[in-house]
Amino acid sequence: MAARSKTTAKKEYKWELRLYIAGNTPKSVTALNNLKRYCEEHLKDLYQIEVIDLLIHPQLAAGDQILAVPTLVRKVPVPIRKIIGDLSNEEKVLVGLNIRPLKN
């Protein structure tokens, strides 16, 4: 899997998301697919997803205090939020990212 894949090419994003994974495991694939789905649905054209594979860049794990994989980090808007797991529970992810109000 590519280390960083930018899904959109806009200059400014309201949402900057970073997904930490460790190799191409079923869990990380599920997490990425889930994340993409939620973003397309709720944050169309407002987000940027950065995927970091820790197997390739292990030195980046300390920066965002990553313990578990997969971990989704919301860098922008602040405060930083972290969601760990394969993001299978949509409601929890949206609450965790505080996305719900934007949809309305």
Binding site: K27, T30, L54, P58, I66, A68, I80, K82, D86, K92
Partner: peptide
């Protein structure tokens, strides 16, 4: 700061 949804493991810690 942390929300948990679904399966995960501590590979991040291992890698670190």
């Amino acid at each position: 700061e942390i929300e948990e949804t679904g399966e995960y493991d501590l590979d991040g810690l291992f890698i670190r």
